[in-house]
Simulated scan of single mutants.
Amino acid sequence: MIYFRSDYSQGAHPEILDALVKSNDVHTDGYGLDPLSDEAREIIKEHIGRPDADIHMMIGGTSTNVTTIAAALRPYEAVVAPLTGHIYVHECGAVERSGHKVIALPTEDGKLTPAHIDDAWLLFEDDHTVVPRMLYISNTTEIGTVYSKAELVALREACDKHNMYLYMDGARLGAALTAPGNDLTMKDIASLVDAFYIGGTKNGAMIGEVAILLNEEIADHYRWMIKQNCAMLAKGRLVGVQFTKLLEGGDNSLFYEIGRHMNLMARKLKEGIEAAGYGFSGQSVTNQIFPILPKSLIEKLKENFFFYEWAPYDEDNAVIRLVTGFGTTEAEVNAFIAALR
């Protein structure tokens, strides 16, 4: 069985495993308060150009989102997200469980615009309605699109106009920053958002993400919020070790090497599917692609390939999702393309 179901179906990149093994016998304090985590923090601060950043080793994406949103908002404040946003669709109501409404808005390409922010404020009346206080975006989006620098600048200006926080979910940030045509850098992001996280789980790590807080209001007592949300990893140093290995070397680091590989494998898949005469849903430029295939062919493909059946398309066709990861090989890509014939 060949896996195109997700970008975390394998354990970890060999270089990350090697780094974990080499640090295995080192004794440290727990909960991310250790020299190994501190080393990762310093590498990240230098890479994003923000020595003032408050950086935390986190377990996973959902807990990072819930913790950050809960840390930022008062009980009567809400977060604005795309209708396809992870916090709205794939986190089992975790943000709402923390007491904050998600205002989900439809988009054409998974990306929010200043017009969406204005629409969210049209829903606000007075003290009988929640206050839209935070804008949630993800890069890549859940459908594989990416934000440009101009789009992020525009969102920052719109958030400032409405006194809103801007928060970026970076679960697939490695794929976003290595996508064809991308003009954003990690430094750009750190200069424009109030908080974001760098995803490791979907970019070659065994486990973990790094939350980066750039606004003192969100950073206040953040560790308390981590603990209260059951997200404090006792062996936090394991996340630190992995992110040191991922990001040492800056723009030439393993983090970007993995992102480029995933995108390249997805691009080869896409080209082969197009050559076979099939189209796509959406305009993904990263490691998630969404082919539209005959239902009969999908059933045949399921015999040898594991993937996500994304959505119905029409009576005879459906959309599937194919995702490439750090370990995806050209042989696997070629096998899928050959199976279309």
Rank of each mutant, 00 (worst) to 15 (best):
G170L: 11
E142C: 11
R223C: 00
K227A: 11
I48W: 09
S296W: 00
Y197N: 15
T185F: 01
L152A: 06
V79H: 05
G208W: 10
T324N: 04
Y197C: 10
S191W: 01
H162S: 03
Y308A: 11
L264T: 10
D29P: 02
E257K: 15
T68I: 06
L17D: 04
L105R: 08
R260P: 00
P106D: 13
N203M: 06
G279E: 08
P14N: 05
H13I: 04
F124A: 13
R5W: 03
N215Y: 02
G325S: 14
D52W: 03
G181S: 00
D126I: 00
Y88H: 14
Y222N: 04
D109N: 12
Y147H: 10
I226C: 06
E274Q: 12
D169V: 08
P35V: 13
N287F: 04
K300A: 10
I198G: 02
N334K: 14
H27R: 14
P106S: 13
H56M: 03
A81H: 02
T62C: 09
R41W: 05
T185K: 06
N24A: 13
L246G: 07
E42M: 07
I43W: 05
I226W: 01
P294F: 09
P312Y: 03
V102E: 08
L184Q: 03
V146A: 01
N24K: 14
E151W: 10
M134V: 02
T201A: 08
D160L: 15
C230D: 15
T68K: 04
D220T: 12
A53F: 11
L264Q: 08
F243K: 07
A211T: 08
H162Y: 15
A331R: 10
A158R: 09
L177Q: 05
T28M: 09
D34Q: 04
R223T: 11
R260M: 02
R133Q: 14
I2S: 03
